[in-house]
């Protein structure tokens, strides 16, 4: 995945079954953000892999004051990339098990 400067990692073991999963997001490289970033630390949140959209969660982070509106796309992309990887891993696990 592209280095967006925003890191998103699993915040729990993925059992491959749960639709909602815990993620943790933090800024690794503030220079990649357009807006001024207030260092708040890592943000832990849950994300529903089946029913949620990364960009919507990114918008909620903006509205909660973690990021500025100009960075919503980069945050959304960072979440979307991680979610895609989690889904890909799950699919691969299922297909290798068959």
């Amino acid at each position: 995945a592209e280095d967006t400067g925003v890191r998103v990692e699993l915040n729990e073991e993925d059992d491959g079954k749960k639709s909602s999963i815990a993620l943790k997001l933090w800024v690794e490289d503030t220079k990649k953000l357009k807006g001024k970033y207030k260092d708040t630390g890592a943000i832990e949140f849950s994300f529903d892999l089946e029913n949620e959209v990364a960009e919507v969660v990114a918008q909620e982070m903006v509205e909660s004051g973690f990021f500025l509106d100009c960075d919503v796309k980069i945050v959304g992309k960072s979440i979307r990339d991680r979610v895609a990887l989690i889904k890909w891993r799950r699919e691969r696990t299922v297909s290798s098990g068959n």
Partner: peptide, 27 residues
Amino acid sequence: SATAQVVHSAGRRFIVSPVPEARLKEQ
């Protein structure tokens, strides 16, 4: 504790915690 909780109006809970030091990108 260094953790803080922010609840968005949509109901999502964000928990702020320290960045894992070992995982910070080396500059």
